[in-house]
Design a protein around this nucleic acid. Structure first.
Lengths: 128, 128
DNA sequence: CCGTATCCTACCAGATACTG
DNA sequence: CAGTATCTGGTAGGATACGG
């Protein structure tokens, strides 16, 4: 729950109490970015997301999906059948944000080699 | 320290062991985004950053700055005088990434009201 | 297949005090 | 002014077991 101050709701991520800061912290969470990115223009199921986003646990997947749903970035489609079939989809708002997130992700991938080359924080482990 | 696997260094944020994932987690940290955004095209000092990025502690500021320096996104300029005068500046790599980050931040600010309106997760606290 | 419910731990991050 | 050092609590997040 986020309590909006009555005054000063000028959007500004640099202000501690601004909802924009709260939203930024949700969106930039460890898993949110990856989920939004991978959803793209398609619907994906729980199991597919687990496989595509390497390293995520069932718990964090569900938790992040619920969070993104609460801020209207994704929609949950429950087919109400047995065995269960649930699909997740970006809302139009989510798709709009995804463009920005993808730009960042692709930038990181494109510049990865430049960053890690000659960087003492990255060591090359030689396989035998 | 991040150990690079010998094979498969195709940049891919969705792969758990890819350096791109590691970099994404650094860049999308709680404070990294805000620091990169606020630095813009100028140099800022420790105290200025503390004031501009509301809510950050001295500890997290230093820690985040060191991290960003280690992945070559910012440069630290120590004037070597007493009293100390240190400035932080985005590298050209950092400035390039900043464009992507700013696009995301400004999107969040622009769409903030739409997200929080009629959202039960946000309550309006009425001041007296 | 798609989740919850618990338990448990590491580390993120705030608070405070101190220094060249 | 620009940091370190230390202590500590809260919570993110993993592991496991169970359920509709």
């Amino acid at each position: 729950m986020f309590e909006l101050p009555k005054e000063n709701i000028t959007p500004d991520v640099f202000r501690e109490k601004c909802p924009a800061r709260y939203l930024l912290n949700r969106v930039s969470g460890k898993w949110s970015i990856l989920i939004i990115d991978i959803l793209d223009d398609r619907n994906l199921r729980n199991g597919e997301l687990m496989r595509l986003v390497e390293g995520i646990s069932q718990k964090m997947l569900t938790q992040t999906l619920r969070e993104l749903e609460s801020i209207k970035l994704i929609t949950r489609h429950d087919m109400q059948i047995i065995p269960p079939h649930v699909e997740y989809e970006l809302t139009s708002l989510g798709k709009s944000l995804r463009e920005k997130i993808c730009a960042m992700d692709r930038w990181i991938e494109e510049n990865m080699l430049e960053i890690i080359s000659n960087n003492k924080n990255f060591s090359v482990k030689i396989a035998e």
